[in-house]
Structures are given as structure tokens and as C-alpha cells.
Design a protein around this nucleic acid. Structure first.
Length: 244
DNA sequence: TGTATTATCGTAACCCTAGG
DNA sequence: CCTAGGGTTACGATAATACA
């Protein structure tokens, strides 16, 4: 969070887009935090954070140029995938071929093992199970999984609590193909990450696990009425986050 | 806040009819 | 005659609200 109000930032962004260099610089400065937050996600890949930061900043600049107010989402919602795209492109282009190759082999193995186990167990296999199935140490499985769906995860917690991922956002490689669909997905993800634990649980159980209010109430140890009221509150909250 | 009630929605069950 | 499909109804489950 920056000190500047979001309304002020919007003004700044408008000016920047109109070619006001000073405004642009100031806006960039205010949003470098975004770049860092993305860089952190890629910290375990053996690249210099400084270097990734440079690359990420390019993504930020591109985002400023291409951001369209009619998207009706917050700037960060749009910028983050853009930054990620830039960094991923860089990593892809810079990865030694053989590394990429062995990693690709691994991901292929993981994919098929995953499908097999999914069928056998009737649920998402754990990392340990995948590891045993393929005969590769868990750390490498993690790496392989990362490669399959690297990504954002602004709300890791939301995933952990339930095991199975809710959805994946990939195809972020190309900043050009901006389907409003995934913009929305990211927006929702971000909004979700800003809810507190109880609120997030309710939304996950209700909308991703498709439980009834009564079921949710039982799980969380509250009444159906509570769930109904909280749900209503949360939904308007999210709506506000997405459009503000 | 919780209980009791009402409103809403999906769907199973039934009937009817047109077309094979 | 059979049957696919369309329309109607009734019912149960779920969610929202009224009230204490």
C-alpha cells in the first residue's frame, strides 16, 4: 500500500498515459513495490533479484502504456500479470536448453502421474505421492509443478487450506493477449487474498467447493443465517474491491 | 444473535401431442 | 403404436428475511 490515495494515483496514471514524463516517473516510483512482490515469487530460480527487478520494471512500464481504464479493474490487477509475463519471458529465453529440456521431461512425467493418481485415488495426489510414483525427490516435484503452473498466488493461503488448487492462471506469457476473462480471474484472486481467513473460507467453500450455506455453517461452527449474512457482506466487499 | 418463517429455485413426475 | 419433446405442477432443498 502506498501513501498516496488511489484516486490520486489514478490521476497520475492518466497524466502519465498522456505523455507527462514527470507523472510517469512518479507513478512508476509508487508502484515499484508491485514489481518487488512479483520478483519475490521467482526468487527460488537462481536469478539475481536485481536483474529480475529490472526486467519486471519493463513490464510495469508496458502495463502503464497499455492499461485501459475501461477494463474496470485496478491497475495492480492488470500490472501484475504483465510484470509476471515479462519475467517469465526473460527466464524462458535465458534458460539453458538442457535445463529446460530436463524440466520439460519432468513436467511431462508429473502430468501423466498426476492423471493416473487422480484416477486411482479419486482426488488430487499429494506431492509425496507424486514423488513416490515417479521416483523423484519431492523437491524436484515441486520444481516441476512450479514449471507447470508457476504463477501469481497472491493468496497462497487460500490454496493451502483446502489442498486442491481452485484454478490455475497460466498463459500469462504474452501480455498482448489480454482476455478479459483472466483479468477477471486475477482480480478475483487478488480480492480473495485481501479477505480475512473466515471470509475467505466462506467464499471458497461456497463458490469453489459448491457447499450449501448449511454445510458451510456446520464446517465453520456457525449458523446458516450467519453464513448468509457474511456471504452477502463479503460479496459486496469483493465487488467494491474489483471496481474501486 | 438465533429461531421460525417465507421466498426462490431446481427438478422429478406427470400428461399431452406431433411425428416416425 | 411408440416415443421424443414440451409444458405444467408439486415438492424438496436452499437462501433470505422477520421477529424476538
Amino acid at each position: 500500500m502506498t501513501l498516496k490515495s488511489s484516486a490520486g494515483q489514478l490521476q497520475l496514471l492518466k497524466k502519465a498515459k498522456e505523455g507527462d514524463e514527470e507523472a510517469k516517473n512518479e507513478f512508476v516510483a509508487l508502484n515499484l513495490g508491485l514489481v518487488w512482490s512479483v520478483v519475490k515469487k521467482f526468487s527460488n530460480r537462481g536469478y539475481e533479484p536485481e536483474e529480475l527487478f529490472q526486467i519486471g520494471s519493463v513490464g510495469l512500464l508496458k502495463a502503464i502504456d497499455k492499461f485501459d481504464f475501461t477494463y474496470n479493474v485496478k491497475f495492480s490487477t492488470y500490472a501484475i500479470p504483465m510484470i509476471i509475463g515479462e519475467i517469465k519471458r526473460f527466464i524462458r529465453d535465458n534458460s539453458p536448453v538442457k535445463m529446460a529440456r530436463s524440466l520439460r521431461d519432468l513436467t511431462i512425467k508429473i502430468q501423466s502421474a498426476k492423471e493416473k493418481l487422480l484416477y486411482e485415488l479419486n482426488r488430487e495426489p499429494t506431492i509425496i505421492e507424486l514423488s513416490e510414483e515417479i521416483g523423484v525427490p519431492p523437491e524436484e516435484i515441486v520444481m516441476g509443478l512450479e514449471a507447470i503452473q508457476p504463477i501469481v498466488s497472491l493468496n497462497d493461503v487460500a490454496y493451502q487450506e483446502d489442498g486442491a488448487p481452485i484454478y490455475y492462471i497460466d498463459k500469462l506469457d504474452d501480455g498482448e493477449q489480454l482476455h478479459s476473462q483472466w483479468i477477471e480471474k486475477i482480480a478475483v484472486k487478488e480480492a480473495l487474498s485481501r479477505l480475512d481467513k473466515l471470509e475467505r473460507q466462506i467464499i471458497i467453500l461456497r463458490y469453489f467447493k459448491e457447499k450449501s450455506q448449511t454445510e458451510v455453517a456446520k464446517v465453520l461452527g456457525i449458523t446458516q443465517v450467519q453464513v448468509s449474512r457474511l456471504e452477502k457482506k463479503i460479496l459486496t466487499k469483493i465487488k467494491n474491491m474489483l471496481t474501486q
